[in-house]
Each structure stands twice: as C-alpha cells, then as structure tokens.
Write a protein that binds this DNA or RNA. Structure first.
Lengths: 226, 226
DNA sequence: CAAAAGAGTCACAAAACGATCACAACATAT
DNA sequence: ATATGTTGTGATCGTTTTGTGACTCTTTTG
C-alpha cells in the first residue's frame, strides 16, 4: 500500500520524454515532464518529486546549470541522460550522493532499473543512520556531529576519521591502515597524529585525557570501548 | 541445511566475471556480479552478500576507492583480484581482518579455496578472535589482555611476545627463534630475558612461580600446558 | 660442595613514540 | 581577487618503551 513515487523527466526532445513516460508509468511511477529548465523548476516547486531524469544537452540553459540550481535547494537524486557516453566523466565529477547517469541508447529495462536503484539509495539514506556513544553522536547522512548535544563542526577528514572509528569501537587501526585508507598510502605516521590531535581538540572534553580516541602504543589508535 | 552463501564479483572484464561465476556456482555459491563500482554498491545494498571479489584496476573509480567506501559501511571480507603480483604490498597494507588477494592467473581450484577460507575466517571472526587460557585472555583484534578478568596493559613487544606464546601453548621457542622473530636477529639472550621478565611481572600472579611462561633451561621458553 | 653457566631483577640511558604548535601550501567560498 | 578554511610538514617537548650493564639468585655439573 505504498504511495506512487513521482519522477520528473526533463528533456527538450519530446519523443524521448514520452518514451520514458511510457516505461515508467508502466512500472507504477507517476511521471511529470518538462521541456526546459525553467519549467522544470516550476514543476519541482509545485509537486513532491522523488527523482529527476535530466538531459544534459538542452538548448538555452543547459543541464549542468539546472542541476546546480536544484542542488542548492534539495537532495533529490538526479539521473543524467546523455546521448554520447563521452560526457560520462563530466557527470561523474558532478554527481553527488544518490546520482547516476544513463546513455540514451539504454534499454527501457535498464533505465527503469537505474531509477529504482537510485530511489532505493536515497530512501535508505533518508532513514538516517545515526551512531550514538552516550556523549558523542554522529549523523551519517548529514555528517553532523554532537558532543553532549552541542553541535561540533568537523572538517571532511576529521569527520571521515571519526566515523571510521565510531563505527568499529574497540577495534585497533594501525597507522598503516589509516594511511592506506585516508591518504592513499602516502604520508607518514606524523600526518595521522596531527590529524587526530586536531580531531581530539574538537571532540574530547579534555584532550589531555582522551575519552573517545585512544592511542595504542606503537600500533595506532582505537575508539573507546564501553 | 545451510543457506547458500552469496559472492559478489566486481570486474569490468566480463569474461573474467563469467568465468568466476561458473567456478563459484559450481561449488554451490550464489553469485552476483557488477562491472563497475557504482553498480557494486547498489548490489550490496540490495542483497545480502557474504564476500566480495574485487578487481583493483577498473576504469573510472578504482578498486581501492570502492573498497574504502565499502569498508566504511561493513566488515564484509574482500578478496582482491589483481593482474600482476606487484600490487600485493599495497593490498597487504589495506587489508583488514579477513581479507586476501588473488592473482588473475590463479587456478579455479585455488580461487574457490581462497573464497572458502576467507568465509571461514570471517565467520569465526565475527565471533571475535579470542585466545583463552582459563585465567588469561587475549583479544587479537583489539590487542587487549585480561588476567582474571582484570585488564592488563602491555607494551607492543610484550603483547607480540605473549601472543606468539599463547597461540602455541607447550611449544618451546628458542632464544634464537625469538631473537630472529622480534629483534631482526640482532641482540642476545639477555635482551629476551629482560623482556620476558617484564612481561611476567604484568601477567603472572606471582612472577616468582610463573604459571604461563616457563623457562626451558638452556633452550628458551614455552607457554604452559595444562 | 664449589665452580660455572644460566636465569632473573633493577636502574639508568638511549631510542622510539606521541602530542602540539607554528607556518606554508593548498583548496574553497565569497 | 580576497578572505577563509583545511591540510601537510617541520620543529620541539614530554612520555613510554626498550636495550644495556651491574648485580644477585638458581640450577647444573663435576
């Protein structure tokens, strides 16, 4: 008894739009359409849309520009449509969280599969994964961190490190493992130490007596147990 | 009455993927496949996968990057595939817990054997790798040690020594073997004795009458047997 | 039982390790 | 272009670990 999911298809080529509408409606989706960027923005404002299929190459305002505007407002997953597969790299660079791309020559089945996959991902992501260690809380979907309910602002690397540790409490990570994972294997232990020092300064009530990230002499670090 | 185990094979080379599928299905595994990292992530979300065979060199997002993303989410064992054996060192650094690697030239039988080994390990590891000798307990993944339930803090060398002994109770290690293994062959018996003296002080209820690490006159040491 | 070799302990110094600061390089946002 | 934030590197300082030498205790052996 699940509500229909709504997909917005944006393409100046009307035959493609109608083709996609057929496939998607067939699969039980509700479909909205737009033939240019401005129209798309209007539709987005007037409807609850769960995902967007967007042609990159459109006259006037192109797909990338539109994408940026949308992204400023929401996290809705976007599936990029492109005629040639050359653009794929560009799209990769642009792609965020739940995004994907399709070449126009893809089969109906494949397109529908991608749409479903993208929706599933954004779904499970919106279920909000949270890690909680009494005083410290991480929200994995928003990358927010709180200490005693107080929001803490971390840099990307700080957050990534903390998340790894918090997800596997008590597990000891060696310097080598951390370097491999966060520094592509280049750098030395010192880099790790400095980074963790900075992280501690932000999340440890008293950095001199760490409560969360403990050092394991000669080996590496681990997140506190119990 | 055991459920089939599912293996995900990720490689851009479709012929290799199908080859592996044949071998593995033949052995009673259920096999999923993906030809790039993004697809792999989707498959992982949609299925219960017990192990992953992953090509390191793939166009676009490479295997290391994918591995990192997966590792952020789960502990699933990963078997790395590589064409050349040069990468082995890198993989070693990256590998955690139950991981392993295979060169593409390996025989079908070998590959299947590795998969099974890795699954066995991850199985017994999820039960946490622990060595227990009634009064003394080691947790190999966190390097923690307890004596009568009381946590004992050991230095790296102390721990490494203890672990070696505890893993092979009753086995006699000569001074020469210990020096070879922990001191790169340089140093003399005296060094070993001092080190073990310190270790005993921490783990022996009464260091004058050792319960765990016994001396073998003129030869070396061994861990107690019953 | 005495001598010799092995084993254990203690104290001290050298070495390795860890934390932090300051600054430069780099990236990002405005 | 400027300002801001992030990250890596080098220098420094305090701490922990570890090797060494002196000394004592124990076991073996003749």
């Amino acid at each position: 008894m699940e509500a229909k999911q709504t997909i917005l298809v944006v393409d100046d080529d009307k035959s493609i739009v109608e083709l996609l509408r057929d496939f998607l409606e067939n699969e039980g989706f509700s479909v909205k359409t737009a033939h240019d960027g401005d129209r798309a923005l209007v539709v987005l404002e007037e409807n609850i849309v769960h995902a967007l299929i967007l042609d990159i190459m459109m006259p006037g305002q192109n797909g990338f520009e539109l994408c940026r505007q949308i992204r400023a407002e929401s996290d809705i997953p976007i599936l990029f449509l492109s005629a040639r597969s050359d653009d794929v790299d560009k799209i990769r660079g642009l792609a965020l969280g739940g995004d994907d791309y399709i070449v126009k020559t893809a089969s109906p089945g494949e397109i529908v599969a991608r749409v479903k996959a993208v929706l599933r991902r954004s779904h499970s992501q919106s279920k909000r994964k949270i890690i909680d260690h009494d005083r410290l809380t991480l929200d994995l979907s928003t990358r927010e961190v709180w200490l005693d309910g107080q929001s803490v602002s971390l840099t990307p690397k700080e957050y990534d490190l903390l998340r790894l540790f918090a997800e596997r409490p008590k597990h000891v990570f060696t310097y080598e493992q951390l370097l491999e994972r966060f520094w592509e294997g280049i750098g030395d232990k010192h880099t790790v130490r400095v980074q963790l020092s900075r992280l501690r300064e932000k999340i440890e009530p008293n950095p001199n007596e760490p409560q969360f990230i403990m050092n394991v002499w000669g080996i590496g670090y681990r997140f506190k147990g119990e």
